[in-house]
Simulated scan of single mutants.
Amino acid sequence: MNHQPKPQEGNLTNLKDFVLLGFSDVPNLQWLLFGLLLAIYSFIILGNGTIVLLTKVDSALQTPMYFFLGNFSFLEICFVSITLPRMVFNLGTQRRTISFIGCATQMCCTLILGATECFLLAVMSYDRYIAICNPLRYPLVMNQRVCSQLVIGSWISGMPVQIGQTSQIFSLSFCGSNEINHFFCDIPPILHLACGDTFINELMVFLGAALFSFFPLLLIVFSYSKIISAVLKLASAKSRAKAFSTCSSHLAVVMLFFGSGMITYFRSNTSHSGEIDKVISLFYTVVTPMFNPMVYSLRNKDVTIALRKFLCKQFVKM
């Protein structure tokens, strides 16, 4: 982690608000981006909301795997709702200011839900590991109480650390410009505005990212190494294809989320580029939530059948 201390400027500003520059560098595309992001947000809410609904109302989806999937889809709705509506609002009104408290709240919620997503993806991989490698013990190991505890643990485990990290960052002094070269209040662009030496803050960001990404990722890698080994031993080609199909959807989401997140948070503050950061951040804040309903509905026969049954019932009622 390369470090170059920032010069301490004489004029410190007690900021009351920040300005999110977002995509202001492409003024001719503002309304195109407004329409595109609004459509994407609507699709994410509709797609993930449908999965949440189906996992609640369809008896065939009352299994641990779909219990976790329903919670993950709900998490994606919450995660995208922290950043995307604000982006759409800024593009539509050209009002880019966000209050100091609002910025801190947005960052804190993003970090907490990001940590939750890391843990929940690890839990989902562990569920697939037990289901494929220990199918006879699966109902006993992944009972309703254990599933609920794993989900609750995923939601609350990151809260103390991420609240503390946000408080530490926003207790810094900020000088000069209040313009954030990003579309939401993320750690790298906020640290870029801070005065003085931010080495300790960068180190804490690095350690926090390691804690909430490496350990879940190690569990995911372990689970999938065991899964692949077990699947290759299956005699039936059809069984192997079904197992790989189920796991590949989850693995695609894992690679997209962890890959983009780790690129963002494991680089030093001095090596960050505003434009590159915005593009990378789109992957874990927008693309992953949009990708989730597609891979789990288009590639999953159970979800597709449940959706058809649900729609048929609604048409009959009409």
Rank of each mutant, 00 (worst) to 15 (best):
G164F: 04
S297G: 09
S173R: 08
C195Q: 12
A60F: 00
V19L: 00
Y138A: 10
K278H: 09
L38P: 02
S236T: 05
M65K: 07
L84Q: 08
T246G: 01
G153S: 11
S59H: 09
R137F: 02
P160F: 09
Y66A: 09
L21I: 04
E179R: 10
D127S: 07
K233T: 14
Q168Y: 14
S236E: 12
I220V: 08
C247A: 12
M107E: 03
F310T: 06
R96S: 05
L113V: 08
M1I: 08
S171H: 15
L111N: 04
I130G: 00
L111P: 02
N292I: 03
A306Q: 03
M65V: 08
N181L: 10
C175P: 01
T105Q: 07
K6G: 01
V161G: 02
N292D: 03
G102I: 13
R240G: 12
L38S: 04
I190M: 15
M318A: 00
I180V: 11
P85W: 02
N292H: 11
M65T: 05
D186L: 07
V52G: 08
Y224W: 12
Q106Y: 05
S42M: 08
I98M: 12
D127A: 10
L282P: 01
K301E: 15
D197L: 14
L12C: 08
L203A: 14
M107R: 02
L32F: 09
V303R: 05
F257K: 07
P216V: 06
I200A: 11
C78Y: 09
G164M: 10
V151A: 04
S229C: 07
F72R: 00
I228Q: 03
P85H: 00
L251E: 06
L307P: 05
P27V: 04
V57K: 12
T13V: 15
M294Q: 04
L211E: 05
A131L: 06
F100C: 03
E179G: 02
A60K: 04
I163D: 07
F315I: 06
F222H: 15
S239E: 15
S177M: 12
N292Y: 02
G176W: 07
Q94R: 13
D58W: 06
S268L: 03
K301D: 15
I180M: 06
S236Y: 01
T246D: 13
S260V: 13
P7A: 10
S81P: 01
V303S: 06
E76P: 00
V19Q: 00
L219D: 09
S42W: 06
L234V: 14
S260A: 14
F72Q: 02
K317D: 06
G158W: 05
L33T: 03
L282N: 06
A115R: 03
T270V: 13
A243D: 13
V279M: 04
L84Y: 10
Y126N: 05
S271M: 10
N201R: 07
S271A: 12
Y129S: 04
L20I: 04
V287Q: 02
I263Y: 10
D277G: 10
V141Y: 05
K317Y: 05
M318G: 00
G47L: 05
I130Y: 01
I98K: 02
I187V: 14
G35D: 03
L207T: 15
I101A: 13
